[in-house]
Amino acid sequence: MRKLMLLLAAALLVFGGLTGCEKEKPAEKTATAESAAKQDSAPAATEEAPAEKEFKIGFVYVSPVGDAGWSYAHDQARMELEKRPGVTTSFVESVPEGADAERVILNMARKGYDMIFTTSYGYMDPTLKVAGQYPDITFMHCAGYKTAPNMSAYFGRVYQARYLTGMVAGRMTKSNVLGYVAAFPIPEVIRGINAFALGVRSVNPDAQVRVVWTKTWYDPATEKEAAKSLLDVGADVIAQHQDSPGPQEAAQERGVYSVGYNSDMSTFAPKAHLTSAVWNWQIFYDHVVDSVRDGSWQSGQYWWGLEHGIVDIAPFGDMVPQDVRDEVLAKKADIASGKVAVFTGPVKDQSGKIRIAEGEKAGDAALLGMDWFVEGVVGTTE
């Protein structure tokens, strides 16, 4: 009887241990199927040819990867990295900016990741704090400006693509009122609105761009309602700095045009969508991962543009005339070659004051700290 009781006790301990391990599963999501396929096909390690150390990369996203916008664009690049030999990636989505972000980043660092990408402006200080605690991990923070010996800031000159989409919108508007659904009044967003407005007014000086702030990155219902408020005051083209396609859908429902952001949003509003300002993060992520793995990586601020292909515009909608396409593509080539800079003076602010003198090109410091609207924008920077 005693022997039977001991056997039962041992069985319960084993079962309890297994369920305890199940509760300790990490929060981040990994590309398990692809990773497993790699492991199945990889040759067994031998004394003569030891297996290459796995290179682990983590991503932190502010919105769901299915948002069709910002996080979706980053995750497309992550999935391409996952295909590389010896590379494993994972991600945590919908992480609020602030204390939650620090917790998630710290959790990844404790698990021994080689690189961690944090992909929202509000992750800047949490990333910097964790980077200071883990000097052997390479941290890449998107959309910010702070750096450390093991942390770089990176972004893309998406304002160049914004200018081009503004040209399309300026040619296509009939009411000369364009709406812009914007997230937060930070330099990144203000700069994009200004570039869009400069593009609009380069081809249509009578047009104005009306701005509504949502104070959200991803809230489809709020963003769609903001677009409707702009449509109610006569906008016949809706642009956006938001992660969801809600503004695109609102435009199509009203029978007007739209300009998307982050990815090609034409599937959500095929009758409205003129083009989008889009990201191709894979180009940059391949470069930076290679540099970390070969030891050539250096901390700094990376800000690539059309010349590298990290930013671009989506294919034009069928409604965009050929002469408009030709005009925009010619300007794209000029910007990519460096012949034309978007923020070249004279550029006035809303009050008519010259902010960028004639012939002068705004430097990166001025662009990164931009907190004023150009002439032709209706709205406040707060």
Score class of each variant (00 low, 15 high):
115 M>K: 09
220 P>R: 01
54 E>A: 14
125 D>T: 15
113 Y>G: 04
73 A>F: 00
15 F>M: 14
26 P>E: 00
54 E>S: 12
374 V>I: 11
199 G>E: 08
234 G>H: 03
4 L>S: 14
229 S>I: 07
155 F>R: 01
90 S>M: 07
84 R>E: 08
235 A>L: 03
275 T>M: 10
163 Y>M: 08
131 A>D: 05
86 G>S: 08
146 K>Q: 11
215 K>F: 15
113 Y>W: 11
214 T>C: 09
122 G>Q: 03
376 G>L: 06
250 A>Q: 01
168 V>G: 04
194 N>C: 10
64 P>D: 03
363 G>F: 07
298 Q>R: 15
261 Y>I: 10
175 S>V: 05
195 A>K: 02
133 Q>Y: 11
260 G>H: 05
219 D>M: 02
120 S>C: 13
189 V>W: 08
135 P>Q: 07
91 F>I: 00
151 M>G: 02
154 Y>H: 09
243 D>H: 01
296 S>L: 07
193 I>L: 09
42 A>E: 12
23 K>F: 15
185 P>C: 01
347 V>K: 09
294 D>A: 10
179 G>T: 11
295 G>C: 04
184 F>V: 11
361 K>L: 11
171 R>G: 07
26 P>V: 03
219 D>R: 02
82 E>L: 03
347 V>S: 07
65 V>G: 02
244 S>F: 05
359 G>T: 10
80 E>K: 09
338 G>W: 00
111 K>W: 09
321 P>N: 09
147 T>L: 09
92 V>K: 13
286 D>M: 01
128 L>W: 11
136 D>Y: 10
353 K>V: 09
40 D>Q: 15
317 G>E: 09
70 W>P: 00
131 A>V: 05
198 L>N: 08
155 F>S: 12
256 V>L: 05
308 H>T: 15
285 Y>I: 04
208 Q>E: 14
357 A>S: 13
213 W>V: 02
30 T>N: 12
310 I>Y: 00
327 E>D: 12
242 Q>C: 11
375 E>L: 13
50 P>K: 08
